[in-house]
Write a protein that binds this DNA or RNA. Structure first.
Length: 215
DNA sequence: ACCCAGGGTCATA
DNA sequence: TATGACCATGGG
């Protein structure tokens, strides 16, 4: 089977098993961006609690965050962990948004320079940038994360120590750039990873069992 | 008490 | 380029 067909097949098995995920859970694109920073190396549960605190304090906007002292901002996002670091990262994100003329202006940038610009923001690395591009701005990028590496290396479809860029480009070069499908695919990989593929012992019960080859 | 979760930066070799 | 240290909470 071709690589494209394998990736599509895996997508269809996951999609059938788990159904629509409706990512990213947020009221606005800005809230997606904030969530993408807050969820770095923590659980969505912890990040989500921090988002609730920010909303309750009416801080879920670039200008409101910009006008809040960094230490006060940190107090609202304690539950997300690394709160001092993440407060700085949120501030850097909001400064960048402001300098760039806001989200609607950013939407108009073409993908490659936009991605470069995002990566130049302090605290926004490749995965956070791609979360923002795909889930906040609706751009066709394939998000790579630890679950993606674990799942596809276990299925024997990628080398374990490949760079982020090479992985992303290899998915994007094989799959048709469909935003809705990329959105759902990454959500499925995460949901699946949280359930079964963390423990490789249970391949038999997994919806991808036919591909797992007894790893 | 330990481990990890929807990462990223910085210092060192 | 490639490791290692660091950031810090909450649930298992």
């Amino acid at each position: 089977m071709s690589k494209e067909n394998r990736l599509v097949h895996i997508y269809e098995l996951l999609d059938t098993h788990y159904g629509p995920q409706n990512w990213w859970p947020a009221d606005t694109p800005f809230e997606v961006m904030v969530g993408a920073v807050l969820v770095q190396n923590t659980t969505w549960r912890n990040a989500s609690a921090a988002i609730t605190c920010l909303k309750k304090a009416r801080l879920m906007s670039p200008s409101a965050i910009r006008n809040t002292p960094i230490n006060d901002l940190a107090d609202f996002i304690v539950s997300s962990g690394y709160f001092n670091i993440k407060a700085q990262r949120l501030m850097a994100l909001c400064e960048w948004l402001e300098e760039s003329g806001g989200i609607d202006q950013i939407q108009r940038q073409s993908l490659k320079p936009l991605r470069r610009n995002l990566l130049s923001v302090h605290g926004i690395g490749p995965e956070t940038a791609d979360d923002i591009l795909l889930y906040a701005l609706g751009k066709p990028v394939f998000v790579i994360d630890a679950y993606t590496r674990r799942l596809f290396s276990r299925l024997g479809l990628l080398r374990a120590n490949e760079t982020y860029e090479n992985l992303r480009l290899s998915f994007e070069s094989v799959l048709r750039p469909n935003v809705g499908m990329f959105n759902q695919y990454h959500a499925l990989i995460v949901v699946h990873g949280k359930n079964i593929c963390k423990r490789q012992a249970e391949c038999a019960e997994c919806c991808l069992a036919e591909l797992c080859d007894g790893v």
